[in-house]
Design a protein around this nucleic acid. Structure first.
Length: 362
DNA sequence: AAGCCGGGGTG
DNA sequence: CACCCAGGCTT
């Protein structure tokens, strides 16, 4: 870490004065309320997405008091499409809380701000620094990315030790407010500057390091590893289950479908007969149809991902010549003609895909 | 610490 | 399709 914080924040501030964004709606007529609304809308939401919602929202709820007085339905109506709807509910509740407890003005202390629903550590820092001229610290996705690269910080910055380190760095590099004698910029400008830097130069893909004001101090750049930081969230490797899907086809161009049990995957849907990977198809046919198949042809396996495991499906094309329809139970299984029969209501996606591929219907 | 919320952009 | 976005709340 750069011991003298100024060596970091001064180039960032200077860059921002020349090249930062200044036309965003919430950067005009800056007020605590407007900054608050923008910060909430921008949580896990891109700037371009948020802009029209911000303009519309302020049209209908121009002040904190109007927001506090609105019904939840009204607020949600103007949030529709933005997602994360608890943000809107929390904001209305917070507005009411501000009216009741703080005389209708957003409180000017960190401790009071984070008591409000929807305002966490970073959002409080943004409101305090940008709209209240206080030295307060933000750590959003942009700042995380910049700092993780500059310091080549290992690990996923979402939680744990990496997150602690980032907060420490963010605290360290935030300039004083009011600024030192002779300086013009404030902590609020630094907050804006870091977000602009992350959003316009220090982007996740194709960062513009040659234009970056802190490239000389960027450890990731020195190692030519910029895009390796911040490191991605470790994904759990899904367990893989392998099965065979049998396309038992008879001389009438029908395939056998089974109704799946009411519990487990695809409950109640019509699926292909399935068999553990190493079980013999021949034995299965003998057991179930009372005879051996004419031909057995393995198709190319493909995968289908569920939330909790990955299913590797090995399709097997099986010609059983004449069908033995008499032994079938009507509500458990039936011979289905993909080109002529009426399509069963529920077919799992992979089954549908297989049938389409092999019979070319729809 | 991990899961959840969500629509949309992007490689 | 996987991953991520101006995060915060709940369990």
């Amino acid at each position: 870490m750069l011991d003298n914080a100024k060596l970091f924040y001064q180039p960032v501030l200077d860059w921002h004065r020349k090249h930062g964004r200044s036309g965003l709606p919430w950067q005009q007529e800056i007020s605590p309320y407007r900054v608050w609304v923008s910060e909430i809308m921008l949580q896990q939401t891109r700037v371009d997405t948020a802009i029209p919602y911000f303009l519309n929202f302020l049209q209908h709820f121009p002040t904190l008091a109007t927001l506090a007085a609105a019904t939840e339905d009204q607020v949600l109506h103007h949030w529709t499409g933005l997602g994360y709807y608890n943000r809107a509910r929390n904001m209305r509740r917070a507005a009411q809380q501000v009216v009741e407890q703080h005389g209708g003005e957003l409180p000017e202390s960190f401790d009071d701000l984070i008591e409000l629903p929807g305002i966490g550590r970073s959002t409080a820092g943004a409101i305090l620094s940008i709209s209240m001229a206080q030295r307060a610290v933000i750590l959003d996705g942009n700042v995380k990315r910049v700092l993780a690269r500059v310091h080549r910080l290992a690990g996923w910055p979402g939680s744990g030790e990496p997150l602690k380190q980032l907060w420490k760095l963010a605290e360290h590099y935030t300039p004083p407010d009011p600024p030192e004698h002779g300086a013009l910029q404030t902590a609020g400008e630094y907050s804006q500057a870091m977000m602009d830097l992350g959003a316009t130069l220090c982007t996740r893909h194709n960062p513009q390091c040659q234009l970056c004001p802190v490239s000389d101090n960027c450890q990731a750049l020195q190692m030519n590893e910029v895009t390796l930081y911040p490191q991605p969230k470790p994904r759990k490797v899904l367990p893989v289950k392998e099965i065979q899907f049998l396309l038992l086809s008879n001389s009438d161009d029908e395939v056998l479908l089974d109704k799946r049990p009411p519990v487990g995957i695809w409950p109640g849907l019509w699926s292909l007969p399935e068999l553990p990977l190493n079980n013999s198809v021949e034995d299965y046919c003998l057991e179930r149809l009372g005879k051996s198949p004419l031909t057995v042809k393995a198709e190319k396996p493909f995968s289908h991902t569920f939330s909790h495991f990955k299913l590797m499906i090995h399709p097997v094309w099986v010609d059983v010549a004449e069908s033995t329809k008499d032994i079938m139970e009507p509500n458990r299984s039936f011979w289905y003609n993909p080109t002529h029969s009426e399509k069963p209501a529920g077919l799992p996606a992979p089954v549908k895909k297989l049938l389409q591929k092999n019979f070319g219907k729809e």
